[in-house]
Simulated scan of single mutants.
Amino acid sequence: MNNQLRVVDDEEIKGEIYLSGVTVTIHPISVQIFNVNKTNRQSIHLKEFCLTDDRNVSCLFQIDATRSNTDNICAQITFNRRPIVNQYEISLYFINDHHKLEHIQTLHTDTAKDKKTLVFSKFADKFGPGCYHNRNIINECCVLCTKISRKDIPYIFAKKPALCLPSQITDCSLLFENNALANFVIVVEDREFRVHKEILASKSSVFLAMFDSEMKEKKENKMTIEDIEADVFHEFLRYIYTNIVNELNTHAEKLFVVADKYDLSKLRLICIDELTRSLKIENAIHTLMFADRYNTNTLKERTIEFIKWHIKSIVETEDYKRLYQTKQAYLLNEIILSVI
């Protein structure tokens, strides 16, 4: 009966449901089971669920009635590992008999005991002895709801897989779509991209220096780039003109390289965040080597933290076994130091 929601028809959270990094889950509990377990001082373990933006992080929600004093009944949520993409905020609600959310308590992961478990002590105020009544029941069930939100998100996701920075949206999307008034040509692979020097220079210090110099590209109003794929460069231009990136999960690594080359710091941060969220046991060593190669400490630290929590599985991967044969074998020392 435990159903994870991506869309919830309630005004209190409806406006936030499309934010990247929000996981809303309902937890219906039979009144009979609730009362029996509370009387017998037994815990109620509900179905484990994963965060919608990071499938590597799973959570277990439970009602703890094992304490000697039943007045101390509480709800708690335990992460299978400490979240590594900065901080999370966890809010606990219940749905009353008018089908409205009522807030119980909000906690943050930086206060979790053992960095994994958060205890909702105020749960007893609604469901402890003397507080539990019919307005807390729907169809013979206590319906609890958890909302887990990332607190460091520099952008939001639209309904389609596009990324948008609303504070920096410009009016250049029409110029990107139809190339009106373009005054420069960039050739990548077999494609020509007609662009506007002023727009590129306003976003990239590298392009600004190029267009402000006496290089032949400036005189010819044309240049060729040989170390970038055309599809990736097209998404790079889309970001410059509109602050939107499509298919970020596909191009994050290559877009980071382009953003690094042309000094787009905010696009670099976006790619770092996506690469962190995409961490898996199978790609962790590759991502660590990539982060080290391009000297991005944020991604490197997050990846080492991920490896630390999955070290037993990662040491069995082929990438880990091959690492000591590469020029970046020194990374093994950093991994070992993080574990001990």
Rank of each mutant, 00 (worst) to 15 (best):
N37Q: 14
P154S: 09
K151A: 09
M223C: 13
V119H: 10
N56W: 07
V188N: 01
L200N: 05
N183C: 01
R322G: 11
N249S: 14
T39G: 09
S91M: 04
N139F: 05
I199L: 02
A180I: 11
N56P: 07
F256M: 03
K116R: 15
F61I: 08
I137N: 00
N72E: 12
D152N: 15
I95T: 01
L264A: 02
Y239V: 08
T317L: 06
L255H: 01
C141I: 02
I33V: 11
K159F: 15
T276F: 04
K116W: 08
C172M: 12
Q105L: 00
E301G: 03
I33G: 11
C271M: 10
G15Q: 12
V185M: 13
C59E: 03
A162K: 11
Y18H: 14
E334D: 07
L248T: 06
L60P: 03
I90E: 01
I199G: 00
V8E: 06
K218T: 13
S213H: 06
I26R: 12
L255Y: 00
A182G: 05
N96Q: 04
A182V: 01
V315C: 10
E274G: 09
N178A: 05
E217S: 05
F193A: 02
I84R: 08
V195S: 02
D231F: 08
K151C: 13
D227F: 08
M1D: 10
E316C: 15
Q328E: 07
I148H: 00
H286K: 15
D97N: 08
Q62H: 11
V143P: 00
T25Y: 12
F79L: 05
E12V: 12
F233L: 04
P154N: 09
E189C: 02
A65M: 07
T298I: 12
T25V: 13
D190H: 12
E140G: 14
K122P: 03
V232D: 05
K216P: 08
D71S: 14
I307T: 04
Y320V: 03
A291R: 00
T224F: 15
V7Q: 14
F34G: 03
F236M: 04
N295I: 06
E301W: 00
H234N: 14
N243K: 13
